[in-house]
Amino acid sequence: MLNYYLHAENAKQALAALAKGLASVELSTDLNLSQQRFSLNEQGLILDEDNQLSIDELKYIAKKKQKIFLCCDGEFDPLEDRSSGYYKLVPTAGSPLLEISGVKMHISKGTDPFKSASEMAQQAVHSGDKVLDCCSGLGYAAIAAHRLGAREVISIELSPEVMGLRAQNPWSNDLGNEGITQLKGSSYELIDTMPSNSFDAVIHDPPRFSLAGELYSEEFYSQIFRVLRRNGRLFHYTGNPHLLRKGSGFVDGVIRRLKAAGFKKIEKIDHLMGVSAQK
C-alpha cells in the first residue's frame, strides 16, 4: 500500500498540466524528498490504479494552502488530529512543520524546519556523542544528531497526537534507524530516571512557557546539568516571546536559571531563537 502526500502547490501543478492538455506531470508526493512522473487523463491525476484524484478534488486541495493531504487506499484525508486541540502538518518548500492550535512549532521563516532543527543539533552535538533530545516533536533534531555521527540518541515526546503525525511524516522515517530510541512520556519526569553524567549533549526544544513552564525551571535545568558529562553541551530552544512581550526579559530569565543550575559559557543564538550552554 503506497502513501501519497499532496498539498496546494502539488495540486496547482497538476491542474496547470491538465489545463495545457499534457499527458503527465512531474510531482513530489513525499513532501519534497523526491520527484516522480504521474499520468493525467480527462478526469484528473492518476497516482496509481487505486488512487486517482478528480479535477474537483485537486481544486479542493489547491484551496487548502495550510494543509497536507494523505492519499491512500482510494481516500484522501488531511494530516491533522483534532482529538485534543488542533494538531496538523503544514507544507513548506522543504520539510513539513508541526502546528498546534495555530502555533508553529518550528523556525520556518527564511529557512526549512528540518534545516533549522539540524542547525540546533550542530550547536551541541559532536560525532560519537550520546545525545538526549527532550520534547522531540517530529524528531528532526534527533535525526540530525544521528546524521552528525551521534552513536546513540534518546528521543522523548509526550504528545500522542504529535507521535501519531510523525508516524505519517516521511521526513520522520529515520527515527526508526538503529541508534535512535524513541521514548513516550514527560521529559520532566523521565530525566529523573536517567543516570548522572550519561550524555555528551542535550537538545531541549520545549513547548511555549504557558504550556509547560516546568520545562523552563531551574529544577529541570539542574536535571539536564546532572545527566550531562563534564563539558557536555546544551542547546535550548526558547522561542522569542521577548518580541511579543517587550521588556519581559524572558530569555534573560532562562539564562539566570541556567547559571543557577551550574551552566557556563551561556550564549544567546539569536537566529535559532535559543541559548547554548556548557557544563
Results as ranks from 00 to 15, higher is better:
224 I>T: 05
130 K>C: 04
91 P>T: 01
72 C>M: 12
168 Q>T: 04
76 F>I: 02
197 N>F: 07
63 K>W: 10
269 I>P: 08
168 Q>K: 14
115 K>S: 03
147 R>F: 15
84 S>N: 14
2 L>F: 05
262 G>K: 09
276 S>A: 02
5 Y>G: 08
57 E>W: 01
200 D>P: 11
68 I>E: 07
158 L>S: 03
119 E>G: 00
156 I>P: 08
86 Y>D: 05
203 I>H: 02
136 S>T: 15
161 E>Q: 14
152 E>S: 15
127 S>M: 13
65 K>W: 00
24 S>Y: 02
19 A>R: 14
233 R>Y: 03
159 S>F: 11
193 T>C: 02
68 I>N: 10
79 L>T: 01
88 K>C: 08
184 K>C: 14
47 L>E: 03
150 A>S: 12
204 H>R: 10
140 Y>L: 01
271 H>P: 13
15 L>V: 10
238 T>S: 09
183 L>R: 08
144 A>T: 10
227 V>G: 05
227 V>Y: 12
54 S>P: 01
81 D>Y: 04
5 Y>C: 08
187 S>P: 09
161 E>H: 12
278 Q>C: 11
169 N>S: 15
204 H>F: 15
197 N>Y: 07
166 R>C: 04
85 G>N: 11
269 I>W: 08
45 L>S: 13
261 A>E: 06
182 Q>T: 08
161 E>K: 05
192 D>R: 15
231 N>H: 11
114 F>G: 04
56 D>N: 11
239 G>H: 06
185 G>M: 12
216 Y>V: 12
42 E>K: 10
159 S>T: 04
174 D>G: 07
134 C>V: 08
228 L>W: 02
146 H>N: 07
207 P>V: 12
114 F>Q: 04
15 L>M: 11
33 L>G: 13
242 H>E: 10
60 Y>R: 12
174 D>H: 08
271 H>F: 13
113 P>K: 09
46 I>P: 02
107 I>R: 03
223 Q>T: 02
50 D>P: 00
10 N>H: 06
72 C>P: 00
148 L>C: 03
256 R>G: 00
242 H>C: 01
33 L>R: 14
68 I>Q: 08
146 H>M: 06
46 I>M: 10
227 V>Q: 10
277 A>N: 11
178 E>P: 07
219 E>Y: 06
186 S>Q: 13
19 A>M: 06
31 L>H: 06
235 F>L: 13
214 E>P: 05
161 E>S: 06
204 H>K: 12
113 P>M: 06
205 D>W: 02
81 D>G: 05
35 Q>M: 10
59 K>Y: 00
238 T>N: 04
55 I>V: 05
157 E>G: 09
194 M>S: 02
221 Y>M: 10
127 S>D: 13
225 F>D: 01
69 F>N: 01
22 L>Y: 07
200 D>V: 03
87 Y>K: 09
10 N>P: 00
245 R>A: 07
17 A>E: 02
151 R>D: 02
106 H>V: 07
